[in-house]
Design a protein around this nucleic acid. Structure first.
Lengths: 253, 253
DNA sequence: TCATGATGCTGGCAATTGAAAGAAAAAATG
DNA sequence: CATTTTTTCTTTCAATTGCCAGCATCATGA
């Protein structure tokens, strides 16, 4: 039996029974309890379940079926590396903004141990991810829900952003090019991002290497002096030169 | 049985019976009384119950919010009836507001077949429930997330509400009394509800019969002419007379 | 071959539970 | 009202069980 199969079956059992025991699963699948614990650990990280002594119970917060729960698999590893690096740039006591993207979601997962952090976001998934964490105040921009991305957009979201000045804004995008700057595929989200950017002196742009020299539909903003680009592999000479000229700092994992 | 399951069940029993005995629980779950005492001790630390000699009672007139999974179970049948009736008062093409409560969540579940509906809510649960429904536009108020109720509150939520005028506002509350009016347990939520109320001419108050003659912490608002009260059993003479005087319409399932 | 991921094993640590004994509270008795 | 009896509570200790971190093994695929 493949590991992934077992994990999926465990999740199915959980949906049905509400809870599972480590000992039961260990017998059922004829693996050690440690293996089961690791499975549960993964499921917990993915937000599905809550581990407890002796087993696990279904996570009631996310119990509501999220058919749209987007579990982004593309470039997962790269994004995780980037997320880790970005989270290292965030400090206890900071107030930050996170946009709505799979990278942001991963970053959020890396912020949970911080103390006295305030996060403003237009992402419903980030909101859910950070809910219930003691040291973190979560503020939603509000706005109209876009089903496809589970993000909040529109005039009300934009208006809310006007009320905030934060330490760091963390954004991602679809593509960056030297000619066209930072580009996005959707106009509504673009507008939000560009407004977010105005809420802080410091912008952190989290982009994996596939985003370089890719141009999407809408130009969201240009690079500015002081921006920080976090990525997984060293950009080529052309980009390094460009960033140097622009006064953009590059962080590579 | 997992320890956490037992603890949750005890809380559910408490919610239903108002009180529990150590000896009873010890027999029921086949553990020693010491174990039960430890469970109750934890529940007391979490603020849900008050230990007493021989057992424990539910912490009523409290501003502690029970977890949604517990609230949802209490008076479930009544709430479902009410939710159904409220949804019959909503029409295709309406723009409505829903507050953050277990009743609202059930109402939301009954709205899915409507066409061209716009729902404005400060409830994260309602947002998730209605996400992905073709005919429904969902707008979040935004604001600061309250973990215990998964609702959005605060200045930003209130400010967003100012921008809307809707056809119908659907609210619930902790208690209603002739002296004190419509009362709530939490100040932040109260403020939101009272602001929502100002966004429409028509308010629908969805309350099961247990809410009558119960007074909670904060007075949120008074009844007005034209309000509609939806409940599960016919209120007594005193209330009917009061509603008649005030010009409040009563709908009973 | 090397790196990677999944699995298993071990030893130290933590959580849960039960048992026992004494303290405290409530009830019963005179 | 004081005293005794009963019940419940708290504290402490021990035993069990589960957890976690680190290391070893094995299969797989680059």
């Amino acid at each position: 039996m493949l590991a992934i199969e077992r994990k999926n079956e465990i999740l199915a059992i959980l949906q049905k029974e509400q809870r599972v025991l480590v000992s039961e699963l260990s017998q059922k699948y004829e693996v050690t309890e440690e293996t089961i614990r690791r499975d549960l650990e993964k499921l917990e990280k993915e937000g599905f379940v809550k581990k407890t002594y002796g087993g696990a119970v279904l996570n009631t917060n996310t119990n509501i079926d999220l058919p749209l729960r987007i579990r982004e698999k593309t470039n997962k590893k790269e994004k995780q590396i980037i997320a880790k690096m970005v989270s290292n740039l965030i400090d206890d006591g900071d107030t930050i903004m996170l946009d709505s993207s799979s990278t942001s979601l991963m970053i959020a997962r890396n912020l949970k141990q911080l103390k006295n952090l305030t996060v403003i976001t237009n992402s419903v998934e980030v909101l859910l991810e950070l809910a219930g964490n003691k040291g973190i105040t979560v503020i939603s921009t509000g706005g109209t829900l876009r089903d496809s991305t589970m993000s909040l957009v529109g005039r009300n979201a934009e208006r809310t952003l006007q009320n905030f000045n934060v330490d760091k804004v963390v954004l991602s995008c679809k593509g960056v090019s030297i000619d066209k700057g930072i580009t996005e595929s959707n106009e509504a989200e673009t507008e939000i991002k560009s407004r977010m950017r105005e809420c802080a002196k410091m912008m952190i742009l989290a982009i994996d290497s596939s985003k370089f020299d890719f141009i999407s539909f809408v130009t969201a903003m240009d690079f500015r002096k002081g921006d920080i680009v976090v990525t997984d592999v060293m950009p080529d000479e052309k980009w390094l030169k460009y960033f140097e000229e622009k006064g953009v700092q590059v962080v590579v994992g």
